[in-house]
Nucleic acid binder design. Structure first.
Lengths: 352, 352
DNA sequence: CAAGAGCCTGCAATCGATTGCATGCGCCTA
DNA sequence: TAGGCGCATGCAATCGATTGCAGGCTCTTG
């Protein structure tokens, strides 16, 4: 037996007032317009009936749904749960709820989900799917619906975004390896069509030069995606340079794990034969063997900041949209070791 | 410049018909009520204007939002992303979108989120937060909003649910260990107030008896939550029984990882000193050292099945609500080894 | 004491789409 | 040719809450 929904009419009747008065009494912003006595009477009636305003009817009139669309590539990628959690925790206190959708990085799926969300009249959109040049993002921004990018940014810097300081993060990794005595450092980059991939790649080149080391083109490989499989595939391309490098900076933890797999398969030891760094510090890395040295990002904070940026009273258009950089830190674990100590290790196992 | 939203009025005007006609032409269910020529004319007008019906206005009239609330304990627990993904992938083709909320297993937070979702007029609710006896679940079910439980079930079996076959899963683990020659098997159980914790615990006792092994009370510890920390704490309580057991069946992968931590701290080797099994097969377990033998569940399927169960045309009330069991499989990895081979291993390292 | 100011409250329109009912038109049949 | 049937369409009410406007009341002030 579906319980009959309580409407404002019921509350007004019980309190002996007009629905308009009841509405004003219940809305904090208009509470001052009614006398204190009626306000409390209405409030009591609402409580007695356990009244829950129909957000849809309200939204129809006010043109606000208190709903935010969140579009990510894939929630099963361990990078995203903390971001989503941060977003939701920041939205909830403001009365907003998140609509979640996964796109698998497919532009057509993205477009579809965005259309659906706009049809649902979301009050804003948080996108973690942006490519460096992304027509969909521009389309949404132009449509007037507030949008904030998270983790990845667009090259169009009019779009507000909250992203990791990739330059700083990669520099931390490179300096760490250099301080351990490494000079021949390889690099497995991520996809260059997204900002994180490109920024980390560029940062690697710059950081090397800052350390007076000329990056060697043959020691750079590109993964087409931030996945274990692509990391493995890309890393394999570096193997023929046998011995030309003693350390690897990767663009992402999953790519680093792909390197682990290939090393195991090739009989190479980490960190004795090769030091490796990751990026992001996803969960469980500390339980790997060896535990992975990586650049840590507070993904929860990344999401929460993005949500808050979206909720902020839209600063006047003159205020150029902000790009907020989140500070990374280096987490040193077992996958990197000093070149000197590595040399003392028992003979490197031969490749098969 | 916020683009002016296109409404049905605009479409009707362009097509030269009344809004009612336009509405019927656009709705597949009522398409037959208008002539074919106007139907196509309206469709063309809609396409030309890129018309997107306002879901809120529609929902107000039809009392359907094509929205489903999904309540989980915590999306950052690796167990849940695949479930959520399965749910969303099953909902999307039917035109439904998921509203996601995290409760951290806090009853008050759960209640709050459920109220919010009901106020948003969700068409249904999928809950992964159920306790064995859960007033909130009963309240929702009684309110007439369709509910499906996922992963955990309620003792009230009138509530439809999709859960792992815990009895079978634990039996697989126990038999595997027994087949490896283990007889003194310890057990780190999960929280007994949720169905998964209780069912796995009971299943352990039964499975042992089926193997003609009497479970030893002193070799059973209880984690209060499915977390690494609680797993470690509970396992530590078993240490004083020094040597009384050669294998451990845990109720969950995170608990198993907690055991790993304590073993490392105590200088115990896995699997030489102790074989361990987990439950769920969350990502990256295969990269651990040793890789974890565990009971695998298709969490994606768990979520997708739950969503489909919710979408199913509500069978008449006489059809007793269904509880669907999802089949587990055993994934044998490096954390379990035959007792005989373990005996051949170099001397067990002493405890500190 | 009358007029004005200010505070509460009610009236009614409104948001955009859906849908029961009524109407008009064309066509078939007797 | 008139009566009748049915299809296609328009009219208008409706979902539930919000809000501009107007009206009534009280209280103050010249």
């Amino acid at each position: 037996m579906p319980a009959p929904r309580i409407t404002l009419v019921d509350v007004a009747r019980l309190a002996g007032v007009h629905t308009a008065t009841a509405s004003r009494a219940l809305n904090p912003a208009t509470r001052g317009q009614v006398s204190e006595s009626t306000a409390t009477r209405v409030a009591e009636a609402a409580k007695a009936l356990n009244y829950q305003p129909n957000r849809m009817a309200r939204g129809l009139r006010t043109n606000r749904t208190f709903t935010v669309g969140v579009l990510i590539p894939d929630i099963t990628n361990p990078l995203f749960p903390p971001i989503v959690r941060g977003i939701e925790d920041a939205l909830a206190p403001a009365g907003y709820t998140a609509l979640l959708a996964n796109s698998d990085n497919d532009p057509e799926t993205e477009r579809l989900h965005v259309e659906t969300m706009l049809a649902r009249q979301v009050d804003g959109l948080i996108m973690a799917t942006a490519r460096r040049s992304d027509p969909l993002v521009e389309h949404v921004a132009a449509s007037g619906v507030p949008v904030v990018l998270v983790n990845r940014r667009s090259e169009d810097d009019r779009i507000p975004s909250v992203v990791p300081d990739d330059g700083k993060g990669i520099r931390l990794a490179v300096r760490h390896l250099v301080s351990l005595g490494h000079a021949r450092i390889a690099h497995v980059a991520g996809p260059l069509h997204v900002s994180t991939g490109m920024a980390r790649h560029r940062a690697f080149l710059e950081a090397m030069r800052e350390e007076a080391l000329e990056p060697d083109e043959e020691l750079i490989a590109f993964a087409r995606w931030f996945t274990v499989e692509e990391g493995a595939r890309a890393f394999r391309a570096l193997l023929p340079t046998n011995g030309r490098f003693t350390a690897v900076v990767t663009a992402n933890d999953l790519i680093a794990i792909g390197c682990y797999d290939v090393m195991a398969e090739q009989g190479l030891r980490c960190p004795e034969d090769l030091s490796i760094t990751g990026y992001n510090d996803i969960p469980l890395l500390d339980k790997l063997r060896p535990s992975l040295t990586t650049v840590r990002l507070e993904h929860y904070e990344l999401g929460a900041t993005a949500a808050n940026l979206l909720l902020e009273p839209a600063a006047d258009a003159s205020t150029s949209a902000r790009t907020i950089l989140v500070e990374p830190t280096l987490v040193v674990r077992g996958s990197t070791m000093s070149l000197a100590r590595a040399a003392e290790a028992p003979t490197r196992s031969s490749r098969r």
